[in-house]
Amino acid sequence: MAESRYVNGGYLERNPSWHSEDSPVKAAWIDAVLRRNSLDPKSVAEIGTGAGGVLAGLQTLRPNSRYIGFEISPQAFSLAQSRAKVDLDFRLEDMILTGRSGYDLLLAIDVFEHVPDYIGFLRALVNRATYKLFHIPLDMSVQMLLRRGLFQDIRRNLGHLHYFSRETAFDTLADCGYEIVDWNYTFWSRELPDLPLRTRIANVPRRLLAGLNEDFAVRMMGGASVMVLTR
């Protein structure tokens, strides 16, 4: 089964850091959305917390809140535990099955593209918190379709089972009962650390196209995700 890679060590083998080097940037992206919408959640949960770096980074930016991260991978949970402290806790459990709820904010950062039944997953979360914040990779672009092997690489190395454009991501959330409050693109291809040379080269046409039309640039060249705040 595709999800077994997260419990048998297969995902950790391909991603030894569990992408923790990206966490400070992602925490800053989340903080920017909350500031823009004048939100100050006092209880924040994260499903699929991974190595816990996003919550740790968010606690640095917003130290007066309580944070709890849920993770099904024993390997990721072990990494996250090293970050646990006062008001920052991690649980090795499936939040969907436990029924935990009542949070001000629930984060699902680069998560549901990994879940086989992503529709069921989203429907199960819709009433777990007042606000829900999703970060969704936009894998569906013209470049991805034209370059042979990229989808297979993403599936094999990153574990993405589903591929979204902005429109299909928004429609999925709406179909599952979410009301979109705010959204913005995030550009991993520009802002995440230690990007490979080919990504930096591709950023040249990405920036040129974005100067003309940002939506068109994302559709053509990819290199972006979308951050979506919902109720």
Rank of each mutant, 00 (worst) to 15 (best):
A2R: 14
Y6T: 11
G9D: 05
Y11V: 13
L12E: 10
P16K: 04
P16V: 01
W18H: 09
S20V: 07
E21F: 04
V25P: 13
A27Y: 15
A27D: 02
D31G: 01
D31S: 09
R36E: 15
S38E: 11
L39F: 15
S43I: 03
T49S: 10
G50S: 04
A51G: 05
A51N: 00
G53Y: 13
V54L: 08
T60W: 06
L61K: 06
S65W: 14
F70W: 04
Q75K: 12
F77T: 02
S78I: 04
D89V: 06
L97F: 15
R100H: 11
R100Q: 13
G102P: 08
Y103F: 12
D104K: 00
L107V: 03
A108E: 00
D110W: 14
E113G: 12
E113R: 02
D117K: 10
Y118Q: 10
I119C: 14
A124E: 10
V126C: 12
L133F: 10
I136P: 07
P137H: 09
M140C: 13
M140T: 03
Q143F: 13
R147T: 15
R156E: 04
L161E: 08
A174V: 12
C176S: 05
C176L: 12
C176Q: 05
C176D: 02
Y178I: 03
Y178C: 08
E179P: 00
E179T: 11
E179W: 00
V181I: 12
Y185P: 01
W188T: 15
S189L: 02
L195F: 02
P196T: 06
R200L: 15
I201G: 10
I201L: 12
I201C: 13
N203C: 13
P205K: 07
R207G: 02
D215V: 02
A217Q: 06
G222M: 11
M227Y: 14
L229W: 06
